[in-house]
Design a protein around this nucleic acid. Structure first.
Length: 383
DNA sequence: AATTCGGGGCA
DNA sequence: TGCCCAGAATT
């Protein structure tokens, strides 16, 4: 028993030494090789915050010119808070994800109003700001204030998945949690900001998604993926079934009282039957939907007319094509071609007649909602 | 849990 | 073309 306890203590000490050595090697490498980026010149929380928002899903090279320009236009958090919304958006134009700019502006005003113009220092206060999620809050607080918080982003996830040979899709909720736990354990608490940046820098420049440069890696000792020959297979690619492209024609019938026809597809032949990609019922979430037909690219309106007559015994007069809609559901990418058709009467059975302007508020799939809104918009234009 | 939001680099 | 990226908000 005594031996077991001693062995455990020894193992933990060895683990601790290994961790400390790993941390030192990576930090030394980072401090010697860090890129000289404009947001690394001070620890000004405003500067760090702006850079982290801009860097969300965006490459460093793309951010550089925008950061300089943005910072010239809005040199301080208070200047940003005072600015007009359209001025902020102008400075953001071309960078993409424009809700980032809107949230940034809103958050600046909140910070001035509620935090005396200084980026908040606690995790909860930071997370309460619009546009600040788990990653950004931890990044700003650790880099600007030295808070002991480990970040987890795409780079860190990849480094951890390789070093610890973690299998599974990193973005799956369970796996992400496990990765965050490891990131927390790894954190060099005496230099959280440098540590976080070091791991991300490693992922961005050495431990890259494809063709990582393991020969140049400062911490290749202790990398399980490298030892097991799994570097090219980790992290696991996200399982994304090949998308099926599908074209659907849908009819928005309209009688004189402003009512339209909704129908419901019969379910699959049997429970747990493999789902066919062109199963209308599943496309519309097995809810009420407009009469629709899977069509080829060269179909004509008469195909849709024939379908309506055969299935529901209804004829349309005065057809009008509405704009094409795109709808994505899991592994399907659907182009919907909605048609508006005036009719004298709706069928008594085989479906239900409801007011068209009521459809968007009904329990229908988002595809049906989009179609109804497009039809209503078209009708509104005529008036 | 899945989708949306953008633009660019790279194989 | 498809994938990936210093993610967050919404439904």
């Amino acid at each position: 028993m005594r031996h077991v306890v001693e062995w455990r203590v020894m193992a933990e000490r060895r683990g601790g030494e290994k961790l400390a050595e790993f941390q030192k090697r990576l930090l030394d490498w980072f401090r010697a090789n860090r890129r000289d980026l404009p947001w690394r010149r001070t620890r000004n929380p405003y500067r760090v915050w702006i850079s982290e928002i801009m860097l969300q899903q965006t490459r460093t090279a793309a951010v550089l010119p925008y950061f300089r320009r943005f910072f010239r236009a809005f040199p301080s958090l208070k200047a940003l808070a005072r600015a007009r919304g359209d001025a902020v958006l102008r400075a953001w134009a071309g960078l993409g994800y424009y809700s980032r700019a809107r949230n940034l502006h809103r958050a600046a005003r909140i910070i001035v109003r509620e935090h005396g113009g200084r980026f908040p220092e606690t995790l909860d206060d930071a997370l309460a700001l619009p546009g600040v999620g788990d990653y950004t809050a931890r990044a700003v607080l650790s880099i600007a204030y030295g808070a002991p918080l480990a970040v987890l982003d795409g780079n860190v996830a990849r480094v951890i998945a390789r070093r610890e040979a973690i299998e599974g899709d990193p973005r799956a909720p369970g796996c992400w949690k496990k990765l965050q736990d490891i990131a927390d354990r790894w954190l060099a608490t005496d230099a959280p900001g440098d540590w976080n940046q070091a791991v991300m820098e490693l992922g961005a420049t050495i431990c890259t998604p494809r063709r990582p440069r393991c020969g140049a890696c400062p911490v290749r000792d202790g990398c399980r993926a490298l030892r097991l020959g799994l570097v090219d297979r980790l992290p696991e690619r996200r399982v994304k079934p090949t998308t099926v492209r599908l074209r659907i024609a849908a009819a928005v019938l309209l009688d004189e009282r402003g009512r339209t026809l909704l129908v419901r597809s019969s379910g699959p032949a049997k429970e747990n039957a493999p789902e066919r990609p062109d199963d209308l019922g599943s496309i519309f979430s097995r809810m009420w939907h407009f009469p629709a037909l899977v069509v080829a690219s060269g179909y004509s309106r008469s195909d849709l007319e024939r379908h309506l007559r055969a299935e529901y015994g209804v004829d349309g007069a005065r057809w009008q094509a509405l704009g094409k809609l795109r709808h994505t559901v899991t592994f399907r990418e659907i182009t919907i071609e909605p048609w508006l058709a005036l009719t004298d009467s709706l069928p008594r059975d085989g479906g239900r007649a409801v007011a068209l302007d009521h459809v968007p508020r009904m329990a229908v799939s988002s595809a049906s909602r989009k179609i109804a809104i497009a039809a209503l918009a078209e009708l509104g234009r005529d008036e």
